[in-house]
Amino acid sequence: MPPASPKSSGYFPGSDDKHPVLITEAQPSLEDQHRSRVRRYTIIMAFRIPCLVLAAIAYSSFGSALLSILIIAVSIPLPWIAVLIANDRPPRRKDEPSRWDEPRPALESRPHKAIDG
């Protein structure tokens, strides 16, 4: 039986010897970010087509306009939600520092010498 691969604590899941070491704090390329945003938008908007088909099936099968309107009402905010999610920044990594950890005083309160003249 092969030895169990050690749990990775790095960027890539799985064994560390299968993946290169990440030595930079650089963000993913703009092309990769755009591709993932387009993918998220497309997936969310793809739920709208089945909603419209289900509304038509519900109306033709059950004759219930109320059920059809409810299904369509659920699909109305999907474009707005898709745009908000697609335009969101990439998720924050666990090792990325938070810039709001502790409040800093606006003015220094240490004593200073004054020159009387």
Rank of each mutant, 00 (worst) to 15 (best):
P3A: 09
P3W: 00
P3V: 04
P6G: 03
S8F: 01
S8H: 07
S9I: 07
S9L: 09
S9A: 11
F12C: 03
P13W: 04
S15Y: 02
D16Q: 03
D16H: 00
D17P: 00
D17V: 13
P20L: 08
V21S: 10
I23Y: 04
I23C: 05
E25D: 11
Q27E: 14
Q27N: 14
S29L: 02
S29E: 10
L30Y: 05
D32C: 10
Q33A: 04
R35P: 01
R37M: 15
V38Y: 06
R40E: 08
Y41V: 03
Y41E: 08
T42E: 07
I43R: 09
I43P: 00
I44F: 01
M45H: 07
A46P: 01
A46Q: 02
F47P: 00
I49F: 14
C51E: 04
L52H: 14
A55G: 12
A56W: 00
A56H: 01
I57W: 11
A58P: 03
F62Y: 15
F62V: 01
F62I: 05
F62M: 10
G63Q: 13
S64G: 00
A65S: 14
L67H: 07
I69T: 12
L70C: 10
I72L: 13
I72A: 14
A73S: 12
A73Q: 00
A73F: 05
V74E: 01
P77V: 06
P77E: 04
P79F: 08
I81C: 06
I85T: 07
P90Y: 08
P90C: 03
P91C: 06
P91I: 06
R92Q: 08
K94L: 08
D95V: 03
E96V: 05
P97W: 02
P97T: 11
S98K: 12
R99S: 12
R99G: 12
W100A: 09
E102Q: 09
E102H: 04
E102V: 11
R104F: 11
R104P: 01
L107W: 13
P111R: 15
K113S: 14
A114P: 09
A114W: 13
G117R: 12
G117S: 08
G117W: 05
